[in-house]
Design a protein around this nucleic acid. Structure first.
Lengths: 105, 105
DNA sequence: ATGATATATCAAATTTTGTTGATGTGTCAA
DNA sequence: TTGACACATCAACAAAATTTGATATATCAT
């Protein structure tokens, strides 16, 4: 439920950290329409190979993407569930009760 | 439109960076039901004052929260629009066309 | 087997973030 | 107008993330 989602701050922080870099967002965006191999991403993002590999690992460790080896190529895809959960976390930040709190009286 | 949202990676990266820390998420969660003054947040989060102030600034610089001074107190509130936009960014990561791309032939 | 290709990993250097304690600023009360 | 309070900012340091270039690993073609 919503409260539980919002309570899991460490997990959410990890998702958002993984999404906090333009290169990684570029990767994620390019995975939107389906699996892509690293070679395609390297071209599209114009990033050095080890650098791209690093960012892919960050995303993978955060559970936002998964990989699949096929021959000598590795294909990455989005983990929709995780993306959705991150979205739900944000959605859980809607006001639930409107408190007019007077503090610091 | 969706593409434009997903295209604005730098802006999105800034939102997600601001959300990438448990203390900051703690702040955001506590602002969910309305404005809070720094004093309340300090208590609730058990954080040193300058530390809290630092994190509030990160959130504010990212446009996720706003502040309002009232006497000697400063009250912070969520910027719903920005939170929503971040959510929309994630929502924009839904598959639009299903391409069965054969690469690396 | 040998070499080439695709990708991962590693170590070192660099950059960015976060923490802490001290000090500054604005506001209020006496 | 002095002192206390709430908060921001700063400087120094610590810790974490990122980049780069080199090397390792797996797979494939010859």
């Amino acid at each position: 439920m919503a409260t539980a989602i919002a309570g899991n701050t460490d997990r959410a922080a990890r998702w958002f950290h993984a999404l906090s870099d333009p290169t990684r967002l570029g990767i994620v965006i390019r995975l939107t329409n389906g699996e892509r191999c690293v070679c395609e991403l390297t071209d599209a993002l114009d990033a050095a190979q080890s650098r791209l590999s690093f960012h892919l690992k960050v995303l993978k460790d955060a559970g936002l993407i998964t990989d699949r080896r096929e021959g000598r190529w590795v294909h990455y895809s989005l983990n929709r569930e995780a993306i959705d959960e991150a979205g739900q976390f944000l959605a859980s930040l809607k006001p639930r009760r409107r408190l007019k709190v007077e503090c610091c009286g």
